[in-house]
Design a protein around this nucleic acid. Structure first.
Length: 368
DNA sequence: GTAGGGTTAG
């Protein structure tokens, strides 16, 4: 076969692989693509683009080591290559690796883009000095004018470090804000216990012409934590209905959680029983509240309803249920749940495993 | 072309 035919064949296969990878990312799809980067040799038509796709796919699958390996073997790199690897490290909390790639990027002569900077700033473990350097760089290079990403990430960065004043400053100084910027700041106020400020910003957003998103509600409800905030909580609840978010499970869960915190288990339970959609978090919220108020028999009852509803339990559920069995000293029930835990391969989870140890100890089965 | 922000339970 001529090399031209080979090339056309490769090109077609490449196109199909890239297409299937972008719709359903999986190792099954990524590995042949990776293989193709190797068989295509060092000088095909679009080498960087192809490699970038492979690195990005590995990163999105959480295969950071594979992503890095491909990145390291790339014959050539561009800004996107660095942005992909920096964002991947940042997302997974590897601040040192992300920062070191950032330094490499600059040593190679690439200018950081808004994606580079917002990626780094959104890393959970980026230290405060590096964040401040990124802020200076953003101001110097005008990155805050490109879009809302850098400013939103910067405001979130300060908030995560407990610097609410700087977070607000960054928010107010932003030349461009988006819905996400507002949602993020609403949430920042909530997380720091400033429910009133959160509410003011939320109302401001609700009065704009732009439609709210589920995260607007989740953010503002995250700050409604005690009985004295109940009035605000109820106001938000009515706005949830008004804006048609009462069928959104994320918003509904935030409402259930709000009622647990502000008015106790009864109103929360009432809400829980009436909502149209329930997932594992809805159940865990109620189960957690039942454990806290020591209504342990009801925990087991709810666990059964959960499985009848076809909602799959997770670590949180099992930990609560096993703790309840321990408190009630019901050995048989706990044992059957232990079996379910093994089936779900959660026995080695730290929290679940510890709950099991405690359960058997309390039931006088120290051997188990 | 490929890269990026807001998320409730524990």
């Amino acid at each position: 076969m001529s090399s031209m035919q080979d090339f056309i064949k490769h090109h077609r296969r490449l196109f199909l692989l890239l297409k299937s990878c972008s719709t359903t990312p999986s190792l099954r799809n990524t590995k042949p693509l990776h293989a193709l980067t190797i068989t295509l040799g060092p000088n095909p038509n679009q080498p960087i683009f192809l490699y970038n796709n492979v690195v990005s796919l590995y990163a999105s699958l959480g295969e950071l080591l594979s992503a890095r390996k491909v990145f390291d073997t790339m014959p050539d790199r561009n800004v996107v290559s660095f942005n992909i690897i920096i964002s991947a490290y940042s997302r997974c909390g590897y601040a040192e690796e992300a920062w070191s790639m950032f330094l490499d990027m600059r040593n190679c002569g690439f200018r950081p883009t808004p994606i580079t900077v917002s990626g780094l700033l959104s890393c959970d473990f980026l230290n405060i000095c590096e964040g401040i350097q990124l802020q200076a760089l953003s101001v110097k290079n005008g990155l805050l004018f490109a879009d809302a990403f850098v400013g939103t990430a910067l405001s979130g960065f300060y908030s995560r470090h407990g610097c609410l004043y700087e977070s607000v400053r960054a928010f107010e100084d932003m030349p461009r804000k988006s819905l996400v910027t507002f949602n993020s700041m609403i949430s920042n106020f909530g997380q720091h216990g400033f429910a009133e400020y959160s509410m003011v910003l939320f109302r401001e957003l609700a009065n704009k012409e732009v439609p709210l998103s589920e995260y607007s509600f989740v953010g503002v409800l995250s700050g409604i934590l005690s009985e004295r905030d109940l009035e605000m909580g109820e106001e938000i609840h009515s706005l949830v209905i008004k804006h048609g978010f009462d069928y959104n499970v994320l918003v509904v869960n935030s409402l259930i959680n709000m009622y647990v915190n502000c008015s106790g288990i009864r109103p929360a339970m009432k809400m829980f029983e009436q909502v149209p959609t329930r997932d594992v978090v809805s159940f865990n919220t109620i189960i957690g509240a039942l454990v806290k108020s020591e209504k342990l028999e009801r925990v087991v009852e709810l666990f059964l309803i959960m499985s009848m509803d076809g909602v799959l339990p997770n670590q949180t559920t099992f930990a609560h249920v096993i703790n309840s069995c321990a408190g009630l000293r019901i050995l048989m029930c706990g044992k059957s749940i232990h079996a379910k835990i093994i089936k779900n391969a959660l026995e080695c989870d730290v929290v679940v495993g510890s709950a099991l140890v405690d359960f058997y100890a309390k039931c006088d089965h120290l051997e188990d």
